[in-house]
Structures are given as structure tokens and as C-alpha cells.
């Protein structure tokens, strides 16, 4: 079948690509556009490693088709830092040693940013429930929760 032409916006830039109709947004990002920061852990929407936002909504990009990106605005981990200026969440993850292997980290950062956009002052329990869709096998989540709490504090100006 002929490939589809899709025009979308990724991390603020206009992007066009061709994809097969069954290709997921995750495959398009990684294989067609070279944006490999978004990770595949399961391909079934259970691990959250492929988290991105589409028009501000947090999704698993493995459950979205590439063609569905048409006309939308997509944010991936590659757009999280402002140039060389790390997002507070990125900085706090480093300061708190909130990553070990790092494969889940992009997805968790995207999900955490999405939480803080909605709730700038989350409790520990709210953070744990929001991040329940993002699996991490290395850390036991302790330091991840600490990093999100600390980043939220900083972003509130406290």
C-alpha cells in the first residue's frame, strides 16, 4: 500500500513524513524521524516508556498511529530542554539520582511534566498514582518521587 503523507508539529517545528498506515507514532518517531529518545518497552501501552504528549494530552505513542499525528502538536523528550537549559525535572532527576539504567527516564519525565502542568503542587500519593503507568525496574521509584517533588517545589518558586 502507498505510504501516507503526514504534516504535523513536533517540539514546535513543522515536520512532514511518509508512513505506512499501520505504523505507530512511536515507530514513526524512532524509525522515520530519528527521534530515538522515545523508547519502546512493550508496544502495548503498559510500560509508559514511549510517553509523549499530543496537543498537551499524555499518551503512549505505541498506541497512536503515525497518521493520527496529522495537524497535531507533539512533544517528545527531545523538546523538553530549552536548548542547553535543562527543564527543572531533568535537572532534579540528575541531582536526586532518580535514574539508573535510564530507559524509562524519557517517558517518566514527559509524564511528570504533564502532571505538574495540571497540578503544580502534587502530594507524594498523587505523584505515585500519576506515574503508575510508567514502569521503572531499577529504582523502586523512591528517588523519582523525590525528584518530582523537588522539581515541583522549585517550579512553584519555593
Amino acid at each position: 500500500m502507498a505510504k501516507q503523507h503526514v504534516a504535523t508539529t513536533i517540539n514546535g517545528d513543522a515536520v512532514e513524513f511518509l508512513c505506512e498506515t499501520h505504523q505507530t507514532l512511536l515507530d514513526v518517531l524512532r524509525d522515520e524521524l530519528g527521534l530515538t529518545g522515545t523508547k519502546e518497552g512493550c508496544g502495548t501501552g503498559d510500560c509508559g516508556a514511549c510517553s509523549v504528549t499530543i496537543d498537551g494530552r499524555l499518551v503512549c505513542s505505541c498506541l497512536v498511529l503515525g497518521v493520527e499525528a496529522a495537524g497535531k502538536s507533539i512533544q517528545t523528550i527531545e523538546g523538553m530542554a530549552a536548548g542547553t537549559q535543562l527543564h527543572p525535572l531533568q535537572r532534579k532527576f540528575l541531582e536526586h539520582a532518580a535514574l539508573q539504567c535510564g530507559i524509562c527516564t524519557p517517558g517518566i519525565l514527559i509524564a511528570a511534566r504533564s502532571l505538574l502542568e495540571r497540578n503544580p503542587d502534587p502530594t507524594e500519593e498523587e505523584i505515585r498514582l500519576w506515574l503508575a503507568g510508567n514502569l521503572c525496574r531499577c529504582t523502586g521509584y523512591n528517588k523519582i518521587v523525590d525528584a518530582v517533588l523537588d522539581a515541583a517545589r522549585e517550579m512553584r518558586g519555593e
Binding site: 524512532r30 527521534l35 530515538t36 529518545g37 522515545t38 523508547k39 519502546e40 517528545t76 523528550i77 527531545e78 523538553m80 530542554a81 535543562l86 531533568q90 532527576f93 540528575l94 535514574l99 535510564g102 530507559i103 527516564t105 524519557p106 519525565l109
Partner: peptide, 12 residues
């Protein structure tokens, strides 16, 4: 830093 910006390269 490469692991929080998505630039670290894993197996895939």
C-alpha cells in the same frame, strides 16, 4: 544528561 534529554543511545 544524555539520559534525561533522550540522546543516550540504547541497543535499539
Amino acid at each position: 544528561v544524555p539520559k534525561v534529554t533522550g540522546l543516550a543511545r540504547f541497543g535499539a
